[in-house]
Design a protein around this nucleic acid. Structure first.
Lengths: 101, 101
DNA sequence: AGTATGTGTAAAACGATATTTTACACATGA
DNA sequence: TCATGTGTAAAATATCGTTTTACACATACT
């Protein structure tokens, strides 16, 4: 298996929710937000890939979707890591490695 | 393999850094913080298991320790999820599952 | 046409969080 | 005694996640 293309931002968990979960369930954004106990706008931000899936949100979505929170959190983590890499830029190179490797 | 005991908070990544990485490298907290490009107090909070390993911190620690950021982030994620579960409490039960399962 | 309903968006307000800086007390070893 | 590292705390700052309120737009229904 090849590595992910590091120049491309990983798929946001909101895409999966928007493309698969909601359509399969045939549930509107408004309904889904109410079921999950969050505001419609907050859910919308996630679906638009503009807001993060926090740990608490992962629990809510995981319960709602019927798969656990892990997948949602892992997808968000990949995005966060990619973003952090952009933010930290070349500063990372200045950090020495102390370990054996 | 048995599941983790859900009543016990998962091991904080700071414990691993404190117990293994720093001792093995023979490096002081002050030195390590400077090498990683963060304040001594910030690193201290992590070692004391009082502060989180953010995505950016995971990149720094991962470079410093010589293993990538993934392990550090995964450990923190487990803690975050556990904390979120405590915070959300029984509210999670009110969320219906729409999926097949 | 008019009415209801869902959607996309934006701004305000709020509380919480992550981090740095500054500061001080304590311990250890030269 | 002096220097150095450590534990800790408070202040200051910037950023973030969320809800509420608001408005424009679209679609469907009657």
């Amino acid at each position: 298996m090849v590595d992910r293309d590091p120049s491309r931002r990983p798929t946001h968990p909101g895409a999966m929710l928007r493309e698969f979960v909601l359509p399969a369930a045939g549930i509107s954004v408004k309904q889904a937000a109410q079921m999950m106990g969050v505001s419609r706008q907050n859910l919308h931000r996630i679906l638009a890939e503009k807001g993060p899936v926090t740990s608490e949100m992962a629990l809510r979505i995981g319960k709602f979707a019927g798969n656990g929170p892990e997948l949602w959190l892992a997808m968000q983590q990949a995005v966060d890591l990619w973003d952090a890499r952009q933010a930290i830029g070349t500063d990372i190179e200045a950090i020495p490695t102390v370990g054996a490797a």
